[in-house]
């Protein structure tokens, strides 16, 4: 691998862990280089100028260099300061970091997804509902990784019918279910909260709403289920840690006494 020097690259810290005595191993998410692994020498020393900057979800300007897969951090500056997400939004922010760590290869640029990440953090810093954005983020992630699915035509190349019921099958896409298999028939199970069939079956309407980024409130649950199914094969064997702690974070609202 060639020796690289990257100067003042916009990015975020995805994760850091202690490395050797006083250093840290950083995984960053950068605009032009995607995920990058960096050794931050001496970053955990009391006098390190980087110490106060190694927080997640803050825009950074990052410089690094080096030859191997792991680069060496050479400079770190804070970008425009952002209000960190709190409560459930913080859980969601950790979740997208974990998604990127699990799915993106190092040094694989995804400028479009980077822009989406930045926009996502802006939504998470507010009190606005963020769930639709989270689904679009997941969908774009799959598309950029090359696992995107066709949300406009079914596996036979026919246009999706809004009221049609489909099952998503890996490598095939939306497989239309015969009328007798559909959950739209009387007596079949169906989720009252979402008007969507239960299980891995979805309506054409849902798929189109996802692709056009026009999810309605009553489609959110079904969209979440579908994205979970689509993401599962790409996340490895371990369950996502951020999901385990979601409940803990969700309980925490804004507490003025201890806010950043």
């Amino acid at each position: 691998m060639n020796r690289t020097i990257v100067e003042r690259q916009p990015g975020y810290l995805l994760h850091s862990r202690p490395y050797r005595d006083s250093s840290a191993l950083l995984e960053i998410w950068s605009r032009d280089h995607g995920r990058v692994g960096l050794v931050a020498r001496g970053a955990r020393r009391a006098k390190s100028p980087w110490r106060g900057l190694l927080d997640n979800f803050q825009p950074l300007s990052i410089s690094w260099g080096g030859k191997g897969e792991l680069k060496t951090l050479r400079g770190l500056e804070s970008g425009p300061l952002m209000t960190p997400p709190v409560g459930e939004a913080l859980a969601a922010a950790y979740y997208i970091n974990e998604l990127l760590l699990r799915t993106c290869m190092r040094q694989d640029p995804h400028p479009g997804l980077y822009a989406r990440y930045t926009a996502m953090l802006e939504v998470l810093a507010t009190d606005q509902p963020f769930e639709p954005q989270l689904r679009y983020f997941e969908l774009q992630l799959l598309n950029e990784l090359g696992y995107g699915a066709d949300f406009y035509t079914d596996c036979h190349g026919d246009e999706l019918l809004p009221s049609g019921v489909y099952q998503f099958v890996a490598d095939q896409g939306a497989v239309p279910l015969l009328p007798r298999d559909t959950a739209l028939n009387a007596g079949d199970q169906r989720d009252d909260r979402t008007r969507e069939p239960v299980g891995e079956k979805v309506t054409g309407r849902l798929l189109m709403a996802l692709a056009q980024e026009q999810l309605e409130d009553d489609q959110l649950m079904a969209a979440k289920r579908l994205m979970r199914v689509l993401l599962r094969p790409h996340l490895g064997n371990r369950p996502l840690e951020s999901r385990r702690l979601w409940a803990v974070y969700s309980k925490l609202g804004k507490t003025d006494a201890v806010r950043h």
Binding site: G52, D55, F57, V248, L252, V258
Partner: peptide
């Protein structure tokens, strides 16, 4: 005084 330290404090306060 890190994000995680603050969230931990917030959780204990709760």
């Amino acid at each position: 005084a890190t994000l995680e330290g603050n969230v931990t404090a917030q959780y204990i306060a709760s």
